[in-house]
Write a protein that binds this DNA or RNA. Structure first.
Lengths: 242, 242
DNA sequence: GCCTTAACGGAACTTCCATCCCCTTAGCGG
DNA sequence: CCGCTAAGGGGATGGAAGTTCCGTTAAGGC
């Protein structure tokens, strides 16, 4: 939790012109920083427990041991509060792994995502945040930035794999990373069982095999053939497979 | 829109024991059916326009030209209303395609999902429904049933492909179908651009290649090798590829 | 076609959440 | 260390969302 960064995109002034100075931006030290840390922590707890619809700003305030007025003045709405929480979460992103093989890195990523989604606190928290983003526009923007950062971090694994000749040059690295996360989130949202380790491995292997077959090439060739989607030697000098 | 089926899992009586007869179950004909159809239609419109958080039952009532009391009595809450809407949507599921090849069928499915998600009405509606399900428990149950039905319908394509020898026997058909939808939903929720046709093709091809490589086998062999994930001849007599 | 009563509908009522007012606390420049 | 004022806190206020009451309409059995 860093000092000195104000809330997200909300406009608690309500005048819409953004000219009024946001509370917390002039004296960001001491108490102001403590209040922000405390409120964001409380907001995360409340979201994990009651979901976005059940998010009561008065409850957040009392959990954080600050006045209700303070929460309303600095964040203004539940959506803006979640957006600021996402800014805070984005700053705490973990570094990607470097196992030496793409499949190894993708599996590390998949397990990280999977463990996050089944975590008793983080899982419900992510569900709640996704709900908030589907509802509130400023939250949606913060969520996109959050995933942009995470995806860009792990895309390095894919670029490294291209250099090693594991997968074809011209592969859209971010698409590969997204292909790993997607099945895990889909399962979280549409089935009763949260993703398990098997699901994580399948997600990583699926993305790996598809990347290897050239499915995520930025310039896409014609329809793939069974067993040789996108051609076994699509665009580069790499002699894997066979 | 069928007559005779009451609301979802909500308990508008509020007594919690479920013994009180639900409104609409004794005289489901004429007016009652008209009211349900009209309210569900209005709820869908309102959801698509304002999202789940902006769903006002009074607004739904006036759109549907029924009394507010009626909506509260028969559905009781926004979540229960969305749950009933999902029951209605599940009944209108379209039949799967039969192009003769797995890749062709998966592409048809991917395009169907993609077109739904970018549709001016359906896209926002699905976003709103996902938000509702992440928040409300009865909605989540209805959503799971909805996808169970859809996935089961398209799983037939995968089973046919196994019989044709396109992919290994023992493949988890529903996992393959989910693998097609997942990237499209993930993109809808976490990026600014809704999925396009390229994304749909990638989703279908990725699932196809992974299925062919044995990633979705119910009994999973050891870690896959590059170019031969799950073994080129995993479990059956099929001579595709090479 | 009549009767019973399920289901609908309008309006008053209650509750809860966001906002406003004004006083208190404490960050930060001098 | 002092003073100015940004930021926080408690309580009152206004309004919107949900609930209840009771009269009205029409479904379905005879």
């Amino acid at each position: 939790m860093k000092d000195g960064d104000g809330p997200g995109d909300g406009d608690p002034d309500g005048d819409g012109d953004g000219c009024g100075v946001l509370p917390g931006s002039i004296r960001p030290g001491g108490r102001t920083a403590r209040v922000r840390a405390s409120v964001l922590r409380a907001a995360g707890d409340a979201l994990a427990e009651h979901g976005f619809a059940g998010l009561d700003l008065a409850d957040v305030a009392s959990r954080a041991q600050v006045g209700r007025t303070t929460v309303y003045r600095r964040w203004g709405s539940a959506g803006a509060l979640v957006a600021d929480l996402l800014v805070d979460m984005a700053e705490q992103s973990l570094a990607r792994s470097r196992t030496g093989s793409l499949l190894g890195d993708l599996k590390e990523n998949a397990r990280l995502v999977q463990r996050t989604l089944v975590d008793p606190r983080q899982g419900p928290l992510f569900r709640a945040i996704l709900a908030a983003a589907a509802t509130d526009d400023s939250t949606a923007r913060a969520l996109r930035r959050f995933y942009e950062i995470r995806v860009a971090e792990w895309a390095g694994c894919v670029d490294d794999a291209v250099e090693r000749g594991e997968i074809p040059a011209g592969t859209d690295a971010r698409e590969v990373v997204r292909a790993v996360s997607a099945p895990l989130y889909y399962r979280l949202l549409t089935t009763a069982e949260p993703p398990d380790e098997t699901a994580a491995n399948r997600a990583a292997e699926g993305a790996f095999v598809a990347a290897h077959a050239g499915v995520y090439l930025r310039v896409r060739p014609g329809a793939p053939q069974p067993g040789a989607v996108g051609d076994p030697e699509p665009a580069g000098e790499h002699e894997v497979g066979r």
